[in-house]
Design a protein around this nucleic acid. Structure first.
Lengths: 330, 330
DNA sequence: CTGTTAGCGCCTTCAG
DNA sequence: CTGAAGGCGCTAACAG
């Protein structure tokens, strides 16, 4: 229609200077009137890159991820950051959380890099991806090797340590740490928080006992019942609750049974302040800076994709936000 | 490595019968040991289809969408349904909610069909997509033309009508309908709910007044203040609250100011029951069946992509779930 | 400045 | 049963 060859059209579409203004004009008019848009698929094929970031979640854990209070903030931060630099996000699920399963879906996708939302550390997967030269970033510490720094998260050891220290400083000793678990297995950040918790206990000279760790499912449907079951037989003076949903469920249980917070029990939550602002009473909590970690994740991943050196700064120390749910034990 | 041509490998990868078992074996071994995976990009290019569904949101409205309580359930339902049939979901944002802006990003993507999360009706966009033969489904009624049935949502007119009828039946007449708005414009479902509200009023012989409609932002950061500002000067006996975040903010305001629900004020919410289960007091609400509509959206879209005839059933009537937040006005 | 050519990886003919 | 050839849409390199 513009009486030019595809090459010239290509040049126009790619803003090459090597086109006479008059020709460019003709081409643009034709493009306009035909509604022509270059085929994304052909471009991907030709360039070998898609400007797509794969967000990998295991199907087994997707509920856990999505119904986590931080998910919305995380999703927003990830997409906005990625879209800001011209990348789109593709949601990918693997059947389960094993390295092979992740690796299989990852290899078969046309994405330039992957964000792996894994519930557990997964050194094996990292090795496989390294071997294949596929850029990736995890949402948390995924390995114990010091050279494995391709993740960004809040420092969960510190979180557990600071939260426990806060309660211990208020004279609480009968503290329970409520954690979610998937098939009886602790997700990594709970392991870290637990280590921090134990560290604080030992500094205060309180012996750690197994029963201080209470496993209650973090899903909306099950949390409340789990809390109710626990309180049928136990009466601690303070709780640390690792999961926002469970924290909300606990508050609901207290509301329903006339248990006053913090007068009857002190509670510390973990997670984004934005979430806790919406609960009553307003919970004292360890704020995880989701916007920071999500932004960092995309940033690092893009650096890996572009082959640039990446800045190493995987952890951010969480902040204790004191609100209305913790009180000194007299 | 297997001493065969690419053609044969292709046949093996595609389970063609035209390969001698021994050859197939050799090829599979080579595939295994090389970790060969066919290029997704090349396949997309060749077939002209990507098995990707684009989820289109305007950048302006992404917060609103994500921080809506139904989003998590919706996201889960959409991804699980899509993944279940071998499609992945690509998150796409358009700069704004204008037809041209949506159309631009849609045309430039390598997706087989699009789910359009629009805050407003958008007949113009639908026409453009129809002209280009691009399959799409909206997340809500997007047009007044009876032939435009490419959407699935809860019936918001009924929602407003039933909710208002419930309060009117409890003798409330000083009812306010709190709706979110984006730049002063009502999102479509609020328009529908408002129409239902007015219909119920008129059946009860209560004159509608402009001030019954109260616009308060639905964002977490702004809702609480909006509620506080409203209650400085007003004292209705009942509220309908169109946005879950605002409903939670109102409950928090009541908690903070000693206002008892439902003794001092009755409240009806809108949105998924899963969400309201987590609030105290437990709100009476119109349940929107997110799982149904999300499932339906993907189903219809796939039917359009495959060129099958689509079942027409765009609306689901919402259900009044009576809990602890509404009481008879004596 | 513009046209011609070739090739990205895959799959589907068509030949043998 | 397997190989050879061609083309999907695009762009970079080369020629003019």
């Amino acid at each position: 229609m513009a009486n030019v060859t595809p090459s010239t059209v290509s040049r126009v579409m790619n803003d090459s200077k090597l086109v006479k203004p008059r020709t460019r004009q003709r081409v643009l008019e034709a493009v306009q009137s035909l509604g022509y848009v270059p085929s994304k698929a052909a471009r991907m094929f030709k360039y070998g890159k898609s400007r797509i970031i794969g967000l990998v979640v295991s199907a087994q854990h997707i509920s856990e991820l999505i119904f986590n209070a931080g998910f919305q903030a995380q999703f927003k931060a990830l997409t906005e950051k990625a879209h800001g630099v011209g990348y789109n996000i593709l949601i990918i699920t693997s059947a389960d959380a094993h390295a092979e399963s992740y690796f299989g879906v990852i290899k078969s996708q046309a994405a330039d890099g992957f964000i792996i939302m894994s519930p557990y550390a997964n050194e094996a997967l990292a090795s496989m991806l390294d071997d294949s030269g596929i850029p990736y970033i995890f949402n948390m510490k995924y390995s114990d090797r010091p050279e494995d720094v391709y993740f960004a998260s809040s420092d969960d050891f510190e979180g557990g340590y600071i939260a426990a220290g806060h309660l211990l400083g208020l004279n609480h000793t009968d503290i329970r740490f409520i954690v979610g678990s998937v098939k009886g297995r602790l997700v990594s950040f709970n392991n870290e928080r637990m280590r921090g918790f134990m560290q604080a206990l030992s500094e205060y000279g309180i012996p750690f006992k197994e029963e201080m760790i209470v496993r209650i499912p973090g899903q909306p449907e099950e949390s409340y019942d789990g809390i109710a079951r626990f309180f049928r037989s136990e009466k601690p003076t303070a709780l640390m609750i690792s999961n926002e949903i469970t924290a909300a469920a606990a508050l609901n249980y207290f509301y329903d049974h006339g248990i006053r917070v913090p007068r009857d029990i002190s509670v510390v939550g973990f997670g984004p302040s934005e979430y806790y602002r919406g609960l009553r009473p307003h919970l004292t909590h360890m704020n995880a800076d989701i916007a920071w970690s999500s932004g960092r994740i995309v940033e690092m991943l893009l650096q890996r994709i572009e082959g640039e050196p990446i800045g190493i700064e995987p952890f951010k120390k969480p902040e204790l936000v004191i609100r209305d749910s913790t009180a000194r034990l007299e």
